[in-house]
């Protein structure tokens, strides 16, 4: 069916973006669910993209290993900035992660191997559509499984009431660090997929605006369930392609969504809560 191939070819980048942005939204969700705010998701994504692209360009490693390395590199960096900041209040992590994006940009620009301001060209197109959606599916399933477990309840406790969490014997900083590491890995994975889909990456692709856009995915979808952010990402990725005028106002729109949702719909536009067997979450009437 050649016409189907044509549709797929025409919309390939968009289809890839849907899945990649879904992964990024999920990575944001993991941090938010633990009661922290990271503005470094774009930076983690960039680190994964550069790691993956460099490995593909300079080594013959199989793609699975490239993906693994792209997930690990941002996790290491996340540990370096997470360990000192998570001992303090939430704003410290937010500030440090904003700074991270800026400093990584300086590194990409100055390190010879990263191609400086010109970025990296000719990255092989190793990303297949099914890989992105398989990863997204696995990550979603994982997030649901964790949400159902003891860890999920612990995270909810950390988010809503630190003292209750302490009573439950939860090490808040350790739990939040773990969430940050997982989040960095997901973002790094998404970055690696995107680099091998677009064939070209540059140091200015992972700036503050990208981070805020990722935040808007998660906030639109709400953090009640891991599915929310993914739906948020799908909507905000597809909408500007369908409604052309929206494209001009993309950043304004993303900003507006964050403001309106936080003020008026603190649970997000998709108000699903994770189904919990046995008991209802606190504060929710049956």
């Amino acid at each position: 069916m050649p016409w189907l191939d044509d549709i797929l070819w025409t919309y390939q980048t968009l289809i890839h973006s849907l899945g990649i942005n879904g992964l990024l939204a999920l990575s944001m969700y993991v941090v938010l669910a633990a009661g922290q705010l990271s503005l470094g998701q774009a930076a983690f994504m960039g680190l994964g993209a550069y790691t993956g692209a460099l490995l593909s360009l300079h080594t013959g490693l199989p793609f699975a290993l490239v993906l693994a390395a792209s997930a690990l590199a941002p996790a290491v960096v996340a540990a370096v900035i997470g360990i000192p900041t998570l001992r303090l209040t939430g704003v410290y992590l937010a500030i440090a992660t904003i700074g991270l994006g800026e400093v990584l940009r300086v590194v990409y620009v100055n390190a010879g191997i990263t191609g400086g301001a010109l970025g990296l060209n000719g990255i092989p197109g190793r990303t297949e559509t099914w890989m992105i959606f398989l990863a997204l599916g696995l990550a979603l399933a994982g997030a649901f499984a964790v949400g159902q477990s003891r860890i999920g309840r612990a995270m909810e406790a950390m988010r809503s009431d630190g003292i209750a969490a302490a009573v439950m014997g939860i090490d808040r900083a350790a739990g939040q660090l773990a969430a940050l590491l997982v989040s960095a890995m997901l973002a790094g994975l998404a970055g690696c997929f995107s680099a091998h889909s677009a064939s070209f990456i540059g140091p200015n692709d992972y700036a503050f605006e990208t981070a805020v856009t990722i935040l808007s995915f998660a906030i639109l979808g709400g953090t009640g369930s891991p599915l929310g952010p993914v739906v948020g990402a799908l909507v905000l990725t597809a909408l500007p392609e369908v409604l052309r005028p929206l494209q001009d106002f993309r950043l304004v729109f993303n900003g507006l969504i964050i403001v309106l949702v936080v003020l008026f719909l603190p649970r997000g536009v998709v108000p699903w809560r994770m189904p919990r067997l046995g008991r209802l979450p606190r504060g929710m009437a049956p």
Binding site: G35, L37, T89, V91, L251, V252, L256
Partner: peptide
């Protein structure tokens, strides 16, 4: 409005993140 309902401190940060993108883009 956030102070009135004693929203978590990160809600306030998020609102200003959205607001700054909105205002500078406009």
């Amino acid at each position: 409005p956030l102070r009135r309902v004693r929203a978590p401190e990160l809600s306030a940060l998020m609102v200003t993140v959205g607001a700054v993108l909105l205002l500078t883009s406009l």
